[in-house]
Design a protein around this nucleic acid. Structure first.
Lengths: 104, 104
DNA sequence: GGAACAAGACACCATATGGTGTCGCATTCG
DNA sequence: CGAATGCGACACCATATGGTGTCTTGTTCC
């Protein structure tokens, strides 16, 4: 069972998630036409998303309809929310970052 | 310049972030002692975190002190918050997921 | 000054990843 | 029925990734 962080790390997969969020459900070939990569690649990305629980499939005739399940994203949301309080230090850290850039 | 999603995708790097959140700043060798991997591996992880802007370095004598900068996490937070409204569909999607599992 | 330590840089390796093309099996449609 | 479509399953390939060990440089400390 793949992890959610890895599934979301790829930009193409994030676009797929976004696409599925805007439409109720879509067959593979219709998604493929919206991306610059081939059908097989999209299919593999969807498999990864499926193994992360982010996407569900429903077979309808000869096409597989994909649907978004955003629930697993909750894990990421909870993880990232832990660091809310550190954002207030943004200004001081920006200073450190700039000093770091100078030394690089 | 590495992206934040990729930087956060690795579990070891998330642990490093967590560790740096709990302590003000740490030298490399002290972090390494807390992980099952070697010094070089930790150093490379920190380089990735640094290129994503999540970590800053301050040289102090012969050791490099690492410090957390949580600001870039904001991008992830904003991205994931877009899908808040889809979590309400969790129950119906769970049903779909189970049906999917049966067909697998 | 010389030993010991911290850490970056580099060479190297196994495996994961993202992409391709092709094949084969259902399913639809003329 | 037969052609065409949709898509999963492979086989394959180039590169990225996560790990190792070794070398070197800089710093501390006796």
């Amino acid at each position: 069972m793949g992890d959610v962080y890895g599934a979301v790390a790829d930009p193409t997969r994030r676009q797929l998630i976004r696409l599925l969020a805007e439409t109720y459900e879509l067959p593979l070939h219709e998604m493929t036409s919206r991306f610059p990569v081939g059908r097989t690649a999209v299919s593999k990305h969807l498999a990864i998303l499926r193994s992360a629980g982010l996407v569900t499939v429903r077979k309808s005739g000869r096409e597989s309809r994909y649907h978004l399940n955003a629930a697993p994203l909750r894990e990421i949301q909870e993880w990232v929310s832990f660091y809310d309080r550190f954002w207030t230090e943004q200004i001081t850290n920006l200073k450190n970052l700039l000093e770091d850039e100078e030394n690089t």
